[in-house]
Amino acid sequence: MSPSSELDLSPGASANPHARLDVLLEAVPLAVAVFDGELTLAATNARYRDLTGLELAQAIGRSIYDAFPNALADLTEQVDIAAGGVPVVSVRVPFQHRGGRRLVEATFVPLVDARGARGVLFAGSDVTEREGLREDLARSVAQLESIFDVLPDSVRVVDADGETVRTNAQAQQEHAPANPQTLRELWRLDRPRTLSGTTLFVHEHPTARALRGERVRGETLEVRRGVGNTIAVVEVNSNPLYDPHKRVRGAVTVERDVTERTRLQQRVQTEAERLERMVQERTRELLALQEAASRDRRLAAVGQLAAGVMHDVNNALNPIMTAAYLLEMNADNPVAVRDYAARISRAAETGAATAARVGRFIRQEPLLGSREHTVD
């Protein structure tokens, strides 16, 4: 509506245009009141009457200065300005409503009727809920800002071009005094590389990958921090930020300093490897000792066997030698020859049994049976 709109508000205007005006006002989703050239209420809608608590009969003909009885602010200045031909736009006015306090965004627009008489149009929009939501949002943002700044991790938010939008206190402290404003500046300062020593290019940075829609989780990198370019180990998580149309509009990156944890893990790993080497060396020593003890036992067993063999061989040879001598001396006596031959045979069997025991020992078979009886 123009600052000075034409509208026939005279009492002599036909009823039909007023009826059309009433229908039009009821269709408007605002509290609306039309005041004539004498600044008395000429037309209104139900939303205005609900806002002010006035019945239609009470409202029509009421002076504009008395048309807002429950307003909690003086509107005289705004009315005078609008009556002078200057619109007053978007004035926040509190009203005491039967349903509780309401906040209305009021506009006063000067009107000119067909006769050239001035009037005023009032339009009010109830912004109580919107303002409440705005206040809730402001409180939530303030709370998030507080949480954001007390986080022990470094948090950095960038836009789609890699420009820094927001950082928390930890991120600012870690990069002081440089305070990088772009992803490329951050990359140049950090000079990130993997734990194996591979340097990352700027497009390989977790934030750059998040700007391409990738979710980076738990990536461990070495970076340089502070004036002295101290090496730090950080665990990086980076997420893309989307608009309602699912387009990437930025990224948020969280870095946690895990330098001490990584060093501790490395020390634990080094100690574990050292202990493993000690266990292997000790195992080899024990195996060597066990082998030596086994050899000693075998040598002792061989010694015992040799002694037994010598004894058994002597037991076998002595009868043979004796029988051979007696056989020679009694060669003409058949009975004696047969007796001495039998003795030689038994002694030979004893020698064969001894040889068999030696063979079983060599083959690691159990030594069955006992030592043969001595041959007489």
Rank of each mutant, 00 (worst) to 15 (best):
M1C: 07
S4F: 03
S10G: 14
S10F: 07
P17H: 05
P17L: 05
D22Y: 12
E26P: 03
A27Y: 12
P29Y: 04
A33F: 02
V34T: 08
V34H: 06
R49G: 02
D50S: 13
T52K: 00
Y65A: 14
N70T: 15
A73I: 07
P87V: 06
V88K: 00
V89L: 06
R101I: 06
V109G: 06
P110R: 05
D113S: 05
L121N: 07
F122Y: 09
G124A: 10
E129A: 04
E131D: 15
E135V: 09
D136T: 14
A138W: 14
S140C: 05
V150W: 02
S154Y: 01
N168P: 02
Q170D: 00
H175T: 15
N179F: 11
P180C: 10
Q181Y: 03
S196A: 07
G197H: 03
F201K: 15
V202G: 03
V202A: 06
H203P: 02
R209M: 10
R215L: 14
E219A: 11
R224I: 07
V233I: 12
V234R: 00
V236I: 11
N237M: 03
P240E: 01
P240W: 01
L241S: 04
R249L: 10
G250A: 04
D257L: 00
V258R: 00
T262Y: 15
E273C: 06
R274A: 12
L275N: 11
Q280M: 08
T283L: 13
L286R: 13
L286C: 07
L286Q: 12
L286W: 13
L299K: 09
H311G: 13
D312P: 05
V313I: 15
A316T: 00
N330Q: 08
T350G: 07
T350L: 08
A353C: 11
T354F: 01
R357G: 02
G359F: 11
E365F: 04
L368V: 05
R371Q: 11
H373M: 06
T374E: 11
D376L: 15
D376T: 10
